[in-house]
């Protein structure tokens, strides 16, 4: 399917809620308001044949106003086209509707995103931490948290700016 065609049909349907189109990147990228993202993906799946949710992940831009983002990658097997959908939410109330109704695959991906970034997917059947220990009190993939285990004793940080 032509990129243009997808773009047109999306514009027609969700004109007010589409923030931007980006054709320069490897995959057609659509940035939308978080309120319509589920509707948009549903439309993509049912009307445009994007039948496969390849990937779903979070991203954090501390310097933006809407700091937390979710990036969806969808794939249309028949025409072999991919599309990337992005949506952003504020960090104070990071709530985005869940995709589990449309794609079962989204279940764990959303849990992982919640686990890493603290994005709350409303109406998710079982939104609990998946990879980290349950008593972890922060969302480790946010940029402000350190990577290192603070208990490491065999490293000398004096050298070479580490």
């Amino acid at each position: 399917m032509e990129q243009q065609l997808i773009e047109d049909s999306l514009k027609e349907r969700f004109s007010n809620d589409i923030v931007s189109f980006d054709e320069s990147s490897d995959i057609l990228t659509v940035t939308v308001e978080k309120t319509v993202v589920v509707g948009l993906i549903k439309f993509l799946k049912e009307d445009l044949g994007f039948n496969f949710l390849t990937d779903l992940c979070g991203i954090h831009y501390p310097q933006q106003e809407l700091q937390l983002g979710v990036v969806y990658h969808l794939h249309n097997f028949l025409n072999n086209t991919r599309i990337r959908v992005k949506t952003f939410t504020s960090i104070d109330k990071p709530e985005i509707d869940t995709l589990t109704e449309i794609f079962s695959a989204a279940n764990w991906m959303e849990r992982e995103t919640y686990d890493f970034f603290g994005i709350i997917f409303t109406n998710h059947p079982n939104l609990i931490r998946i990879l980290n220990v349950e008593y972890l009190d922060y969302f480790p993939m946010r940029k402000e948290y350190p990577l290192e285990d603070q208990t490491r004793t065999d490293k000398d940080d004096r050298f070479f700016g580490r």
Partner: peptide, 11 residues
């Protein structure tokens, strides 16, 4: 188009 995959070959 629905969930149903193309039963014919993709490749």
């Amino acid at each position: 188009m629905s969930d149903k995959p193309n039963i014919a070959s993709l490749s």
